[in-house]
């Protein structure tokens, strides 16, 4: 996925803090990619991750519900409630090898920025699913 060829812009301006609901997320359009941005107000923290859930390839993580698992912040995909760590993106339900990418977030003067450097790095959410899709296409 060649999203932003020139990674000069590492901190991408997403929106204003008031645009994001407390303890919830929004979807940010970064060129032709989608990133989920969360304001976890109960923890006073901000997180960002891929908007696509690797389980069924649905663009819906930003509409997911926030929570914690033994203290670790997580988000649950609204489709099948697969949960992912917001710290490192790994799936917390089972050992299916699913994961999402997470991105650093910073807030300056009421504006929210996402560090999108990781977008340029190769990433596969699951080896099996990708291998299989190549077979059928």
């Amino acid at each position: 996925m060649n999203v932003i060829a020139n990674s000069a812009v590492e901190w991408y301006f997403a929106c204003h803090i008031t645009d994001v609901p407390h303890n919830g997320g929004v979807c940010v359009k970064v060129e032709d990619t989608q990133i989920a941005l969360f304001h976890f107000a109960h923890r006073d923290e901000w997180f960002a991750s891929d908007n696509e859930c690797p389980h069924r390839k649905q663009m819906a993580i930003s509409r997911g519900m926030l929570g914690s698992h033994h203290g670790e912040p997580k988000v649950a995909c609204p489709f099948h409630k697969k949960t992912f760590s917001l710290t490192d993106g790994r799936c917390l339900n089972s050992e299916e090898g699913l994961s999402i990418r997470t991105y650093p977030v910073k807030v300056e003067e009421g504006k929210v920025f996402i560090n999108i450097a990781a977008l340029n790095q190769p990433f596969t959410s699951t080896i099996q699913t990708d291998a299989y899709e190549d077979q059928t296409d």
Binding site: G64, S68, P73
Partner: peptide, 19 residues
């Protein structure tokens, strides 16, 4: 929800207790 969580719960909630 936050009021309920802070009064009777712990942690940050999850996809089970929130709904």
């Amino acid at each position: 929800f936050d009021a309920v969580l802070d009064t009777y719960g712990k942690g940050d909630g999850c996809e089970i207790c929130r709904p």
